[in-house]
Design a protein around this nucleic acid. Structure first.
Lengths: 226, 226
DNA sequence: CGTCCAGTTGATGTAAATCAAACCCAGTGG
DNA sequence: CCACTGGGTTTGATTTACATCAACTGGACG
């Protein structure tokens, strides 16, 4: 089963990962949910009645143009919240990459919790601001970085996710097309850039879906455009 | 004086434009500030001790790469708030385009206002969420739209800003380079695309800094990639 | 054992970048 | 008044990074 193959929970311990500590209170009001590969968690335009946290697997958040061009805004890894900051109507579609399990929280119950707990509200506000900063950095990437800079930045970002410093093994459960749609590139360009990184010895690959960082410094220099 | 030439306050009435009504309360605690052309309001990395509202002129929010590549994340028009949702450290640099006047609010006083007024907090939260949605749409633009789609989208966005429906006269106080850095294009490409829109009769220009929309429908179709 | 995808690699095309040269004002100063 | 200057704009010629098109590979699964 795919979900087993792609289960990242071991490398991203969820407990550590609920970075908004206050949100632990949420766990009491959540219910478990699982999705098959490519199933939609919600769609752009849907009413946002729930918040979610990924337990295992990965969720991609994406937007589509009428002719099928796609942009993957985020990948949500185990321990991360999906749509926690959503407006009343979802601004993007969320789909499972491989089998995925999540916890679902009712929005109105969470909102009640927030209203009752100013500390929680402040955490959420800070979280939203941080998300906004991250997304601004991604706009710089999408508008001005070269293909190799984008790929190197993406790999370093993934390596740094999940707390516990920068890990050297990077799981890549998503397809090359997903990565391309995340970085504004095509499948082929993603392949070629990863191949190039292997060629120069910055990374090695045990499979297309698991890379190992050999020269983080090199990767960093490429990401920085030096 | 540039600020006179570029003063947009007449076309963007500030009263109407403070779309978070509750924020009217802020005006009592603000002080006026003016900036010359290209002067920085704050820089990326600075402590965020103040919030601002543009009165006249325009502010650009931008991020730089070490080699000078630049991305302009936002243009802030009269009546709009700058850095209202900022984290403790500014994530981008804000600079004046032409002479600009603003109102400055002390962060701790605003924060106190927010803490004392739950309705205000909710407005701000909604505002932040809306900003996040807008920025996600911009990522789709930057990663997947063609040059002509980007330009048409940008012009329609500008035409729709400032409440009061879609206006037909679009002031463009920023340079072609600013626009290019906003859309992930070069000055030359921006020029050519605008020239093309004139050629097909979608817009007319009385000067490089003021366009008139002749065929909004056409512009919309181009923006939609049809 | 064949089918089906995702991944990979190669050949070719193209949208937009880069390089280059006018052009157009607004401001300055003789 | 008019020549001069300098920044922004515009248009043209050429290049290029990446997309597109095409073909092959290799593992997963019935």
């Amino acid at each position: 089963m795919l979900s087993a193959q792609y289960d990242l929970s071991s490398s991203f311990p969820t407990a550590v990962h609920s970075s908004v500590a206050e949100l632990a209170a949420l766990d009491a009001v959540g219910t478990v949910l699982s999705l098959d590969r490519d199933a939609a968690l919600f769609r752009e335009g849907d009413r946002a009645d729930h918040y979610f946290k990924v337990v295992s697997g990965v969720i991609r958040g994406c937007k589509l143009l009428s002719d099928g061009r796609r942009h993957v805004g985020d990948f949500f890894l185990p321990g991360e919240f999906v749509a926690l900051n959503a407006p009343a109507i979802h601004a993007f579609t969320a789909e499972a990459i491989g089998g995925t399990t999540l916890v679902r929280y009712e929005r109105r119950r969470v909102d009640a919790l927030i209203a009752a707990n100013p500390r929680l509200a402040i955490s959420l506000f800070a979280r939203l601001s941080a998300e906004l900063s991250a997304i601004r950095a991604r706009m710089l990437l999408l508008s001005r970085m070269t293909a190799s800079e984008r790929i190197a930045t993406f790999l370093l970002d993934l390596a740094g996710r999940g707390g516990s410093g920068r890990r050297s093994v990077i799981p890549l459960p998503m397809t090359r097309t997903d990565i391309g749609d995340h970085l504004g590139l095509t499948t082929e360009t993603v392949c070629r850039e990863i191949a190039q990184l292997k060629r120069i010895g910055a990374i090695a690959a045990s499979s297309p879906h698991e890379l190992r960082v050999l020269r983080g410094d090199l990767l960093q220099r490429i990401a920085d455009g030096i």
